[in-house]
Every structure is written in structure tokens, then in C-alpha cells.
């Protein structure tokens, strides 16, 4: 979907991007990082809005310095801010952005309604956008980015300020776009959102790429560390576990952190539970959540 080679960007004395080298395959990709990590700058450079100080990059195999306009015909962008044009209705706004992308009057109008249907803006589309609430604005901005049917969209904090249902709708739209073959670069502070819709992530901090890769590989289940939710006689369970060489690392309120004697020996836990006569409410392999991976990456960077 895009690749960068030694990309650097300096604003006066501030360095926003340091030697970013990436090759990202098409798909739904998360872009994570604390404030000031360089995420927005990276998007801006890839859109050709900001010129990189040093380095090369290409988006959809098009060179960012020479084929800016061709790139912009094939990408969509959902900025973080409101970005509305006061006085326009929802339909008028999406139609207008279609025209800006280079669509004809008829195409633009027809397509505007198509994408507004897609983001489920019903009658509200005929009302001025000033009266929209946060979730509607975000969906309108998504419609605007999709109007010319891009192959790649950049989303900057698209779930910010939305309520749980609104977030869910937005996330399912993003997943659906991924299934329809549109690549997505999703920049977000909400790690659970990224974990839910993205296949891969790029973690940035201080203008550098700290890690990038598949989420499921980053949060692989640990082979021997498990958590057990248990209801019943905990002392009996502990004894049964000890007999089967399962060590209990921590225990609080019926939740036990355990370490199995070896891989694929979960059966020992089940036997222990059965023998203790309690109920097994949960057996979860310990996996590092995206949050832990993220925090670890940031901490490593702070140390160096």
C-alpha cells in the first residue's frame, strides 16, 4: 500500500520524522503512537501535502514527489478535525468533494448518495452539517473520503468523541472496507479499536518507527502461562494443581495465574478442577495485549 525509504522531515529545529523506512502491504493497518510521534506528519507526507526533507516514498506504487495528483485521485483522507464547510448540507458536502476529486456533476451526485447510504446517514443528509453530532460528522467525513472510490484511505482518529454504538458502527465500516479491498491506514489512540479491525500495526514514537508487524503475532498466546477463573474451593484446587505440577503464581478473588509444567498440558488444569468439584469459569492463555506491546515499545525507546 505504501513504502518509505529513509524518510526525514524537519520543521525548523523540530524533527517530526527520523529515517522512516517501511514497506506496508495492502490491508487494514493501524498507526499507533503517543502525541507528537509523527503520525500526522507521516500521513501528510504520504498525501503529498508536506514535502519530506530527505528520503523517498511511494503510495500505491506512485512516487510522492512526482505523482502527487495521481496519488490523490486514488486515496481518501479523513482528517482529525471537523473539516466541514458551514452552510452545506451533508449531500452538498459529499457532492462537492466528489467534484474536487474530479468527478462529473452526475457521477458525483449519484455517488454521494451511494456513500451516504453506506455510512448510514439517512434523512440527516439533507440538513446543514452544522447541526450534526460527533458521530454523524465522523461518518460524513468517511463518506467524503470514499466518494471517488479510492484504493487507500487514511483515517486520523475516526472514533474520537463517539459513543460506544457509534464507535462500533465506524469500526464495522472500516472492517467492511478492508473486505472490499480498500486499504486502510488507521491512526488512533484507542488501542482496542485498532486491535479489533487491523491486521497489522505500525508503532511510532518521536518520529521513529519502533515496531511494525501483524497484531496476532505481537499478541501471541503464551504457551505455558494461563489465567484461571474458578468458583469453588480454591484451597482444594490449589492442592490439586500442585499435585499435577502446575504452579500458582498469583491468586485473587477466584482468579489464579498459573504456569503449566509444559506445553499442551492444559488437561492437568481440567483434571484439577474436576477433582476439586468447582466450576471453571474461564481458562485464558496469557497474551500480551496490544497495549502491553505498545507500552513496552515506548519504554524501550525511552531507555535508549
Amino acid at each position: 500500500m505504501f513504502s518509505c525509504n529513509n524518510l526525514c522531515k524537519r520543521y525548523g529545529r523540530v524533527t517530526a520524522l527520523v529515517d522512516v523506512t517501511l514497506a506496508v502491504e495492502p490491508g487494514v493497518v493501524g498507526l499507533l503512537g503517543p502525541n507528537g510521534a509523527g503520525k500526522s506528519t507521516l500521513i501528510s507526507v504520504l498525501l503529498g501535502q508536506t514535502r519530506a526533507t530527505v528520503g523517498k516514498a511511494s503510495v500505491l506504487k506512485l512516487d510522492i514527489s512526482r505523482q502527487q495528483r495521481s496519488i490523490r485521485r486514488r486515496v481518501g483522507f479523513v482528517p482529525e478535525n471537523d473539516c466541514l464547510i458551514p452552510g452545506m448540507t451533508g449531500t452538498g458536502y459529499v457532492y462537492y468533494t466528489g467534484r474536487l476529486a474530479g468527478m462529473s456533476h452526475a457521477d458525483s451526485m449519484q455517488r454521494a448518495h451511494e456513500v451516504l447510504d453506506y455510512v448510514a446517514l439517512e434523512e440527516a443528509r439533507y440538513r446543514p452539517t452544522e447541526g450534526y453530532y460527533a458521530g454523524m460528522k465522523q461518518r460524513l467525513k468517511l463518506a467524503q473520503a470514499l466518494v471517488h472510490d479510492p484504493d487507500l484511505i487514511f483515517l486520523d482518529e475516526p472514533t474520537n468523541g463517539m459513543d460506544p454504538q457509534g464507535r462500533q458502527t465506524m469500526l464495522s465500516l472500516i472492517s467492511d472496507l478492508g473486505n472490499a479491498g480498500i486499504s486502510v491506514l488507521l491512526s488512533s489512540h484507542l488501542l482496542p479499536d485498532v486491535q479489533r479491525v487491523c491486521e497489522r500495526v505500525i508503532i511510532m514514537a518521536g518520529g521513529q518507527v519502533l515496531t511494525s508487524g501483524r497484531i496476532d503475532e505481537m499478541s501471541k498466546p503464551h504457551p505455558t502461562l494461563y489465567t484461571v477463573d474458578f468458583a469453588g474451593d480454591v484451597a482444594a484446587l490449589r492442592q490439586q494443581l500442585a499435585e499435577r505440577k502446575v504452579s500458582v503464581l498469583e491468586h485473587s478473588n477466584g482468579r489464579l495465574s498459573i504456569e503449566l509444567p509444559g506445553e499442551n498440558s492444559q488437561t492437568a488444569v481440567l483434571e484439577a478442577v474436576r477433582a476439586s468439584g468447582g466450576k471453571l469459569h474461564g481458562l485464558h492463555p496469557r497474551r500480551s495485549s496490544l497495549e502491553e506491546t505498545f507500552m513496552a515499545a515506548i519504554q524501550r525507546q525511552h531507555q535508549t
Binding site: 492444559q266 483434571e271 481458562l283 485464558h284
Partner: peptide, 14 residues
């Protein structure tokens, strides 16, 4: 737990 043990299956998450 009993059912899984009887069938000789290996469970990794409940």
C-alpha cells in the same frame, strides 16, 4: 471440564 477430559481433547481457552 469433564466433557473435554472424557473426549481426550486439548483445550486452550474457555
Amino acid at each position: 471440564p469433564g466433557l473435554i477430559l472424557e473426549k481426550g481433547l486439548t483445550v486452550s481457552e474457555i
